[in-house]
Nucleic acid binder design. Sequence first.
DNA 1: TAATTTTGGACCGTTTTAGTCTAATAGTCG
DNA 2: CGACTATTAGACTAAAACGGTCCAAAATTA
Lengths: 195, 195
Amino acid sequence: MVNKDEIRESVLKVAQEIFTRFGFHKTTMDDIARGMGKGKSSIYYYFNSKEDIFRAVVEKELGDLRNKIISSVSEAKGPKEKLKAYVIERMQGLRNLVNLFNVLRTEFITQRDFTDQIRMKTDEEEINIVRSILDEGVLDRIFHLEDTFLTAVAIVTALKGMEVPLVVSQVNKESHLEMTLDRLLDVLFYGILKR
Amino acid sequence: MVNKDEIRESVLKVAQEIFTRFGFHKTTMDDIARGMGKGKSSIYYYFNSKEDIFRAVVEKELGDLRNKIISSVSEAKGPKEKLKAYVIERMQGLRNLVNLFNVLRTEFITQRDFTDQIRMKTDEEEINIVRSILDEGVLDRIFHLEDTFLTAVAIVTALKGMEVPLVVSQVNKESHLEMTLDRLLDVLFYGILKR
DNA sequence: TAATTTTGGACCGTTTTAGTCTAATAGTCG
DNA sequence: CGACTATTAGACTAAAACGGTCCAAAATTA
């Protein structure tokens, strides 16, 4: 037997592609099944519903992004580089997930609880990550700030504010992203770096 | 009254975007209507069926490509430049229409007559375009060939053969296209140019 | 072999779909 | 204005597609 979890994973991989491409409503369970080269009931053997799959996809992608951010941050040397790594990795990762989150936003409006839940959980995690970077920076006397928690909240909020233009305009996202990234880093470091 | 044909045109424009993005079956008439900011019955006032719209879209895009090729060819100076312009314009135009023709190929398999009809018509036109370029080249003693018609057929066929990798692999289409374009021109001119 | 996991395919109630119909509105022209 | 036509929205229908279930068969394991 091929491990059940592995098949679950590959279902999610297939589903993620199709959901990203076609959205929630235009994706059918038969599409996913066909993408797996299996019958529909096989899919229902691993998942309870279409919505379950979508939620699992979102959570998986979010988790993957989180892991990537954490590993990239931990590899960077020094708080300043770490903060930069966090911002870059977060923006890059988001760029890949724009479509998926667009689906979440536009087709799951009724499901406020799920969207909120996702947001709250990720917000808390992100704030913690940023805060620990800031703490390290303060300890090393590289960052100069009064309250690392509030600053972390501010940074994460600022980045979240950038999701909107990223999500809304998919046309010129690349140029927009490149332009704003340096400026964003400047702004962030301007208020934080000891001069 | 805004000209009826203009509205038809803008319906085709909207429909082309949605068909390109979602394919034939995943595009609903309500999608098109919503894209026009109108009710569904308004669309049926201008077209008889969903299939009609799709056919009109394909024919329009094909016609536009044809016009672009012709104008680009007529602007180029000399047979050699003309032939190059034809190849480039054709490949570029096709690159934009890959998805649409993918839809035509994968979702209209049953409608053999339509697909064949489209193909035959465009083939004939293309061969004529290329042939007239070749004729000019022979007249100018730049190209050296026995039979311009057969050569035109060969060139068009060769280009059609390149559609397949273009259509099949959408992932690395750009790099593939750039790489093959120069080589293709080399090959074409190798057999044709007087040395 | 027997027990268990996994699958295909028929099936069901519901929703969505392409397409129609009609009545209302907007626009035209004498 | 008033008669006429062009255009629209929205309710409607029959058919198809949909998410999801069921069960027997196949495959896997032991």
